[in-house]
Amino acid sequence: MNIKNFTDGLIKNNAVFKQMLGLCPALAVTTTMLNGIAMGLATTAVLAGSNVVISALKSVIPNKVRIPAYIVVIATLVTMVDLLMNAYLHDLHKVLGLFIPLIVVNCIVLGRAESFASKNGIFASLLDGLGNGIGFTLGLAILAAVREILGSGTILGVSLSTPPIIVFILPPGAFLALGFLMAGYNRLFKGEI
């Protein structure tokens, strides 16, 4: 039961390819695989944290004001992640820039808080947060890998000595790569899920 909380978010309900949530950072920061993974992990930290806190507070927060309360909790966690990354992972923080504070409005975070953490126990919520976060990271990593290999001819910075197709690290390439990957996802998993 608990394991399912974790694995559901990985492929079956993958945030990027299936639920199509958090697409702004997914398209914007995936020019290299490292950036994609870093963005995914930052989101995972916020998601797991907010799920745990909201699950712990679910009996304290009155139903009517739950959304503002969730937003406050999420924004606090995002600010903490933002400050910590700026201090200790400064170069990465410069690249991800605007998209770190924008985790606040990533629909995955508020979505999981509302549909899962507000109804389930702390441990299950932690697993749900981690599963969805890692699923999101996986989606970003795959998209970023495709874009880095095609667009720069490198993978994680290591040269593959293939000719770079520059359009894939430019904005249009982000849309094209995601469109084709999504079609591939549909082709692979249609009917099975």
């Binding site: 004001v65 309360a69 406050v72 600010t79 903490m80 400050l83 700026n86 200790y88």
Partner: peptide, 25 residues
């Protein structure tokens, strides 16, 4: 009251992390 308490705790937590990370930033 609930919202105020949550907001206050959040602000304190953020101020703490801000003070902690400011020199490094």
């Amino acid at each position: 009251l609930t919202l105020s308490v949550i907001a206050l705790l959040s602000a304190l937590l953020m101020a703490f992390v801000y003070g902690l990370t400011k020199p490094a930033i």
